[in-house]
Simulated scan of single mutants.
Amino acid sequence: MQLTQEWDKVFPKSPKVDHQKVTFKNRYGITLAGDLYLPKNRGAKRLPALAVGGPFGAVKEQSSGLYAQIMAERGFATLAFDGSFTGESGGEPRNVASPDINTEDFSAAVDYLGLHAAVDRERIGIIGICGWGGMALNATAVDKRIKAVVASTMYDMTRVMSKGYFDSVTLEQRTQLLEQLSRQRWVDAEKGSPAYQPAYNTQPAADAPQFVKDYYDYYGTKRGYHKRAVNSGNAWTQTTPLSFMNMPILSYIKEISPRPLLLVHGENAHSRYFSETAYAAAAEPKQLLIVKGASHVDLYDRVDKIPLDAISSFFDKHLA
């Protein structure tokens, strides 16, 4: 595994933290690549820690790294990582996702943090952004080592892939898609490699929905483009949706309790209903923070809109 050593993030390097590229394995034996951020002048005291993942189709050089670096500035040991099969992490074929394996990736990050000399393993939380927000909730439900969780601008990828936006997909449409994806497996098996979807985040049409234009403004421009990101002109395999179609990841969201949950979403986000549904299904203690005037993508990198003080205070309180 060849890790890029030069700083190739879409955000500037902070002088307030120490940064290191690291690797660790998940329980499926896939080697994951991460960026470890530690606050400077931290002394010998063991720190609370955060694993940070997302958005779906992004890499650690984008939004998750930004969140991780800022939280390290605020006194946390943080680990932003690439999910299995993406970015600098291992796994073949490239650019495929799984609700199970990506949930496991969060727990593998907790494995790594809990063994680090600078970390207090009894004070580990996680942050999931966009589609990895749903993975974070799923991981917290099953992994009792995680003491607190924040999901920012959250997507439930199993819901949107199986039911479409606002649950608009009919049974007939779902059946037709599954028929197509099932038969694509024969094509891929015969060829010995997977076919890929069309490249993501090409220039959207003038009449495209605003959220599609917002995605392009992040992934397709200097603001957030990164060559390794699936969403920056690359693509998922055609059969990636299969494992998401009948495996709802928020079935056990109540079992996050009694550990605290904070959902953060933009007031104007097309995806806001994902957090509202999750909040309604979750048990106390829980909080839904709606950011006035913010869109879905604003919470990727707009530090003037991401409620960083609220997120820091949440972890300061619950990882004390």
Rank of each mutant, 00 (worst) to 15 (best):
V52S: 08
A109I: 01
L79T: 07
T170E: 05
I256L: 05
D207M: 00
D309H: 08
T202A: 13
G65E: 10
F81L: 01
L262A: 07
E122Q: 14
A108H: 02
A141K: 05
Y279R: 02
M71G: 09
Y112N: 00
A151G: 04
P285A: 14
D18P: 00
F24R: 00
D304H: 10
P248G: 12
G75L: 07
I146L: 01
R74F: 05
M154K: 05
E276L: 07
D105R: 02
G134C: 06
N231S: 15
R121Q: 15
I129V: 10
H226K: 09
D111W: 01
V160W: 11
S251F: 08
V52W: 06
T103R: 14
L289G: 03
V149C: 03
L181G: 04
S63E: 12
A148Q: 01
Q238S: 10
A97C: 07
K286D: 11
Q2R: 08
L299E: 08
M161L: 15
D298N: 15
S89T: 04
S295K: 13
K9C: 15
P241W: 06
K163T: 15
Y200Q: 14
I311G: 02
G134T: 07
F211A: 12
K144L: 00
G293S: 09
S152H: 01
Y252L: 13
P248W: 11
Y225W: 13
Q176Y: 13
T277E: 15
E122C: 01
P48N: 09
G224T: 07
D207I: 00
S63R: 01
A44C: 00
R183P: 00
A139T: 07
P99K: 09
Y37K: 01
A205T: 08
T221K: 06
D143S: 00
L178T: 13
F244I: 05
A189T: 05
G266E: 12
Y165G: 06
Q69D: 06
S232I: 09
H265W: 03
Y273G: 05
